[in-house]
Write a protein that binds this DNA or RNA. Sequence first.
DNA 1: GATATATATCTTAGCCACTAAGAGATTTAG
DNA 2: CTAAATCTCTTAGTGGCTAAGATATATATC
Lengths: 175, 175
Amino acid sequence: MSRAKARAALLGELEEAMRRSSAQGVLYGQAVANVAGIANSDLECMDILYLEGRVTAGRLAEVTGLTTGAITGVVDRLEKAGFVRRERDEADRRKVFITVVPETAKRIGQLYVPMQQAMEKVFSAYTDEELRLLLRFANEGYEGVVAATAALKGLLDTPPEQRPDLKLKKRPRRT
Amino acid sequence: MSRAKARAALLGELEEAMRRSSAQGVLYGQAVANVAGIANSDLECMDILYLEGRVTAGRLAEVTGLTTGAITGVVDRLEKAGFVRRERDEADRRKVFITVVPETAKRIGQLYVPMQQAMEKVFSAYTDEELRLLLRFANEGYEGVVAATAALKGLLDTPPEQRPDLKLKKRPRRT
DNA sequence: GATATATATCTTAGCCACTAAGAGATTTAG
DNA sequence: CTAAATCTCTTAGTGGCTAAGATATATATC
């Protein structure tokens, strides 16, 4: 097998492996939501809140791709469950900041313990050097996916004659 | 900073980076489903069909965590859209195999082109050696996530007194 | 300062995918 | 041959989503 072919095969394997593990990651998320007793999007919003901290309802809609109406429902449920709080922005009273109730953060965090332990075990077999490579890849991969998402959405906006023959109809949903 | 602390920091960064890129991956999936004009779970099932080939309705339910009733709906929609076909198993006539219509596979595959291109660009900066490390990690990571999912579900079945204080109620949903 | 437009969130009606329960068809065990 | 098990589909009901518009507040224009 030529060097180029070997690499192509490697890339193929890599692609499939990442796809599989990513799909499994989604399933883990579903299990977490299920155990926590909240809907999937609710958990997704909790995740965003962890990463970004204090966030407005509008930003949640933007990041999740849900409508603001849907976000109202998400926050209603999370607030009722005691996971988050609404806080009006005093500077601009139209805005509503959503914050995670600290104690609850811990409780939900516990549901990620199995995942953390599993990952710890995996990571333990790697040198610092190797982990840095993985980190580099994770960051570059993230940027790549962001770019790909934008490109895909861009496809919809280019006139049909100029784009590859998709034979798929634009569906009036989301952004 | 001690070596141990450096490593802990590295692990933390890594964890966040992977979480972010995984979340972005979910968003890409949503965008694909949106463009293809099908529901999210429908696309998830298409993905499973790609990976596993000819699959029974029951197995789809098992893998996705949906009920068999829901799968009936998924397959109905996909079949109506011309993406898959139902085929009764002649050996065991209770079973229904779902297969992807080949031509359609290509059409949906096109929606992953932006992602593939982005990943190709990222991968191009890595040596074969490095890619093999990434592959090893992807495979081990997959196994880890599978184990973590099982462990999380196991938490629910252990009596409450013996498990960490979750203060979360078991929700009557899914498996 | 008053009016018009823009922005941010919430409300409502209607839709669609999901669950739970069970029916129908077929296979396997006793 | 009958009973239980297995696999898919059907039905009724529920819940989260979108779309459209209401409400409240902020900003721009005259």
